[in-house]
């Protein structure tokens, strides 16, 4: 049993990690009142940028940073449209997703046949020697630990720091925040950039760690699942982590089921994570107050500084 448990847990955490990054970034963006539906596009552009930079430099960390910067650059396009030019946030976000899909496919054409070596896992000294828990929790890719660290940091930032308080205030009522003197647009820019950078890291994890190669459209809807995760987590960082691993687990369960020869069409099994997303969203929507008490009140509403 334990021989099977360890690889299942390790694979689940790996499958969930890109979702943790992307959803955590989107959570911060949404807490400032900005709805950026372009996560899928930002992840893809982050993935191809990270892949290309890793191929060129031979260094994984150069790739991660390239992915982060590419994701942030994409979100800057969105911010310019939606925050400076006051374009509709939903339309601008959808456009960004489609743009990212096309741009990454175009840029990735020459790199399609290259395969990278996946970076080595990092075993945390001592802790990784603990029986069972060691291999399950403390023998992972460095980015997995980074995602845990970021969940803790974002949680502290939002609920313990003054800057986080200001961010939440801007997301609840930009008019009031402006009235007491906070630069609403600048704060929303920063939150949007953070969301883009995190989506970029999520994409980088996919293309240089999880499946170390480039395939067109390789995020396969993870950006959209990340968006759903934010709602699922009712805008709480800790629950994003739990939710991401839940979806990661469903993804892995599908592989194990196929491997075990369960007589169900593989296409149906592959749709499980998406079905699970829909089921979960329906379930939590039955308690509208849970969402309404936690959701940023002015989410997705444009703010005109002069109005």
């Amino acid at each position: 049993m334990t021989e099977l448990l360890v690889p299942i847990v390790v694979a689940t955490l790996a499958a969930g990690t890109p979702l943790v990054f992307a959803a955590l970034g989107e959570l911060v963006t949404e807490k400032s009142g900005v709805l950026n539906l372009g996560v899928e596009g930002m992840m893809l552009v982050g993935a191809i940028a990270a892949f290309a930079a890793t191929v060129a430099s031979g260094n994984t960390w150069v790739g991660v940073i390239a992915g982060m910067l590419a994701g942030a650059a994409m979100s800057l396009v969105f911010a310019a449209l939606a925050l400076t030019l006051q374009a509709n946030q939903v339309a601008a976000g959808l456009a960004l997703s489609l743009f990212g899909l096309g741009l990454s496919a175009f840029a990735g054409k020459p790199l399609e046949s290259i395969a990278l070596q996946a970076p080595l896992v990092f075993r945390i000294p001592l802790l990784s020697d603990v029986p069972l828990l060691g291999p399950m929790l403390f023998s992972h890719q460095p980015l997995v630990y980074l995602s845990w660290l970021l969940v803790a940091l974002v949680s502290w930032f939002l609920y313990r720091s003054r800057a986080g308080l200001v961010l939440r205030a801007v997301g609840e009522s930009p008019v009031s925040a402006n009235a007491i003197g906070y630069p609403v647009i600048a704060i929303r820019y920063l939150a949007t950039l953070f969301g883009g950078a995190m989506a970029g890291i999520g994409g980088a994890f996919l293309s240089i760690v999880y499946t170390p190669m480039w395939v067109e459209g390789m995020t396969a809807g993870r950006g959209w699942i990340a968006l759903a995760l934010v709602v699922f987590a009712t805008w709480r960082p800790g629950r994003v982590l739990a939710g991401a691993y839940l979806f990661g687990g469903v993804t892995i369960a599908q592989f194990f089921a196929q491997g075990a020869g369960v007589a169900v069409a593989s296409q149906l099994l592959s749709s499980l994570p998406y079905l699970a997303t829909i089921v979960v969203l329906v379930l939590i929507s039955r308690h509208p107050n849970i969402i309404r008490l936690n959701a940023p009140v002015s989410l997705g509403k444009p703010y005109h500084p002069d109005a």
């Binding site: 200001v166 609840e172 009031s176 008490l293």
Partner: peptide
């Protein structure tokens, strides 16, 4: 029309100003 933040506490609202 108050410039308060409904989902924050009294002390958080005051601290923001």
């Amino acid at each position: 029309h108050f410039s308060l933040f409904e989902t924050l506490t009294v002390v958080e609202n005051v601290a923001l100003a």
